[in-house]
Computed example of a mutant assay.
Amino acid sequence: MTSVDIVVIGGGQAGLATAHTAMRRGLRPLVLDASARPGGSWPSYYDSLTLFSPARFSALPGMPFPGDPERYPLRDEVVGYLTAYTARLDAEIRFGCRVERVTAEGGVHTITMADGSVARAPLVVAASGGFGSPARPALPGLDSFRGRVLHAARYRNPDGFAGERVVVVGGGNSAVQIAVELARTATVSLTTRGPLRFQAQRVLGRDFHWWLTRTGLDTAWLGPRLAPNTVPVIDDGRYRAAIRAGRPDHRPMFERLDGDRVVWSDGASERVDVVLLATGYRPDLPYLADSGGLDAHGRPAHAGGLSTTVPGLGFVGLERQRSLASATLRGVGRDAVHVLDGLVSRRGRRAVARMTR
């Protein structure tokens, strides 16, 4: 049995930012991560993934992103950065440690791991992201489709797709980036329910994120009803040009899948080899099923990352948790500060220390 001030579940960007913030507030964190190595979900993303924000806006608290601050880091650079950040963080981090269950009694949380080990802490922060829970929309005919169905979480590169007919579902940054990449070797259609929204990567000589930071929009809480349902595709001009050239083409959402065929909204039908779902993720929180921290739909019950149902429970890294940047490298640090300060103020620093001594 291990007793600490706070258990952080997840060792990716959200978990690291939370552990750093906890230590700055005099708390002893224990970070538990199911992965075998540092980097969170980043090593599992597709090979060509490139950040849409410059390095200067893509750092966790306490450690700038190295190199040219105006460049757009590649996936492997982010993995290297998170690995170095992990090594610098003077906290206990256990890799290959999957959390199975979190329960609370008497103001103390009991965290049970898959290997049978147990930790206890008055504070718990769920920072496990959503990569382990890809969103699969209820599309007509998808479950009986005879071709290959692949989520973006399992896509790595165009190898193995040459000459195939591919339909990419989704209109976000990853959907467009993957569709354009695949279209170099395959016949690809990008399909969405609404129009694609593009945002110029640079405006008046400045990166788009510089303007977001300057105006305060990057940290503004828009509220769930005011936040747009889709995010714009950050584009330096290449993606819009590729789609205008039909590589890939962009079509309205299909009517249905029928066997190994897709039926488009105009009634046309054709054979398809692959349906690739770039449809996002849901919070990956199965370990909270018995905690009381999830609502009837399995979603975290929270206000700005602080649980509204379980004292001492917080969340960091949720999509639009407090702002449009909440699930990004540039946003998790701010949310970690908000959540840690809220948790400590509710419990009291001395009370937290007393529970673990």
Rank of each mutant, 00 (worst) to 15 (best):
P64E: 13
A22S: 06
E164R: 15
V344A: 07
L182V: 03
A91W: 01
P43E: 05
D90L: 13
A289M: 07
D335H: 04
N173M: 12
S269W: 04
N157I: 01
G331A: 06
M1E: 08
G62L: 09
A36C: 11
D341R: 08
L294Y: 05
L222Y: 13
D159V: 02
M1V: 14
S53W: 07
R197A: 11
G132S: 15
A55P: 06
V203Q: 13
R120F: 12
G26T: 07
S174G: 09
Y85H: 13
G331P: 01
V263G: 11
S3P: 08
L142D: 03
V7Y: 05
G312C: 04
A36L: 13
R244N: 11
S323E: 05
L204Y: 09
A55M: 12
L294W: 06
A87Y: 02
A268S: 12
T50S: 04
T185H: 10
F208H: 08
A119L: 10
R28W: 00
L27M: 14
A22K: 12
D47I: 01
A301S: 02
G216I: 05
T213K: 14
G170I: 03
D258R: 09
R206W: 13
L204T: 08
L60D: 10
R56W: 15
A301N: 02
P158F: 15
L212C: 05
G170K: 01
A325S: 14
G312E: 01
T112G: 01
W221Y: 11
L318Q: 12
A200T: 13
A242P: 07
T86F: 07
F145Y: 02
V337E: 11
R282A: 08
M355F: 11
G305R: 01
A175F: 02
H20G: 03
V176Q: 08
G40N: 10
G312R: 02
R28P: 00
L51N: 07
F315C: 05
Q199Y: 12
G194W: 01
